[in-house]
């Protein structure tokens, strides 16, 4: 049900959503999130970044996160595309698109997937700035964000 891809090439979020909803009449809502490269981060003047991943494990983790979302909300489809390699400010990095019959499930699942992707999927960013290159540090706000989904199962 979930299409998971890690790729160098750019993606077209509109085309991805169209593909997911083509010939479907049961889908009532699609929530999408697109992450882009900023020109400022820990330092100003970010000119590019390089994204590294762990081939095999990254895809597996993304699938697992998607499965968790599908166990939690009544989803009708989903797409996760994450780019790797060298990217420049303004370039799209990640797409999460989630389809459901109703909007709340789609919004929540999309949010959930991004929070887990940020903290559980093995990707690493190296930023190239005018004053040098450095590996981006993880943010405690991301670790906090993922905690709000940790409810106890009944």
């Amino acid at each position: 049900m979930f299409d998971v891809r890690v790729q160098h090439e750019a993606f077209n979020s509109g085309a991805e959503v169209d593909r997911m909803t083509a010939s479907r009449t049961d889908i009532g809502a699609v929530a999408t999130f697109v992450g882009l490269v900023r020109d400022f981060n820990e330092k100003p003047d970010v000119v590019a970044l390089t994204l590294e991943h762990y081939p095999g494990m990254t895809e597996q983790q993304l699938h697992q996160i998607a499965h968790q979302a599908a166990d939690r909300w009544p989803l009708l489809g989903g797409t996760i595309v994450h780019r790797v390699g060298r990217l420049e400010p303004g370039d799209p990095i990640v797409l999460v698109a989630v389809a459901s019959a109703h909007r709340q499930a789609a919004f929540d699942a999309c949010n959930f997937i991004m929070d887990y992707l940020k903290t559980q999927a093995p990707f690493w960013k190296k930023e190239h700035t005018r004053t040098g290159d450095y590996w981006v540090s993880s943010r405690t706000s991301d670790t906090q964000a993922v905690k709000r989904w940790e409810v106890t199962d009944d």
Partner: peptide, 26 residues
């Protein structure tokens, strides 16, 4: 073997163990 593990995880022949810094994708 491509699954998150902790210090107590048991290792055996043929396993692939990976160490990495906190992840920063998305």
């Amino acid at each position: 073997n491509h699954k998150m593990a902790d210090k107590q995880a048991v290792i055996s022949a043929g396993d692939e163990v990976a160490f990495f810094p906190p992840v920063t994708g998305g």
